Computed example of a mutant assay.
Amino acid sequence: MKNIRQLFKDKDYLLEEPEVEQLIAYCEELQDEIVEFKFEKGKSKEKVLLEIIREISNSCQDIQKQQLEHERFDYEAPDYRNAVLNLKKYLDDRCREERIYF
């Protein structure tokens, strides 16, 4: 992708014209939109699924830590039923948002 200013490298005096300044500003906005689009496009379902799996794994580790604390300090046991329901809700919500069906 060419830098818009390179197009005027032989005629620098044109860069000071209001119309050219507007054109440059517009081109820079479009370049930003292209970058954002490429970023969004790059977020494939595979990446989303990996992100979901990481979140589920982290949730499971948190529950395991709670269980270890319960055993060590005789705290109240984790609410596994509620944890599983929350995990299922999270999974359903993310899959619906990302249009992932299984």
Rank of each mutant, 00 (worst) to 15 (best):
M1G: 04
K2V: 03
N3W: 00
I4D: 01
I4F: 03
Q6P: 00
Q6F: 02
L7T: 05
K9C: 02
D10P: 00
Y13E: 13
Y13D: 10
L14V: 05
E16Q: 13
P18K: 11
P18D: 13
E19M: 10
V20C: 01
E21H: 07
Q22P: 02
L23I: 00
I24T: 02
I24Y: 01
Y26V: 04
C27K: 08
E28C: 00
E29G: 10
E29P: 03
L30H: 08
Q31Y: 11
Q31R: 14
D32F: 11
E33A: 13
I34V: 15
V35K: 15
E36P: 03
E36T: 09
E36G: 06
E40L: 11
K41F: 12
E46P: 05
E46W: 04
E46I: 12
V48L: 08
L49M: 15
I52A: 03
I52D: 03
I53C: 12
S57D: 14
Q64L: 14
L68M: 14
L68V: 12
E69R: 10
E76P: 05
P78A: 05
Y80I: 15
Y80D: 12
A83L: 02
A83P: 02
L87V: 03
Y90K: 06
D92M: 09
D92C: 07
D92I: 12
R94D: 01
C95R: 06
C95K: 05
F102A: 08
F102C: 01
F102K: 04
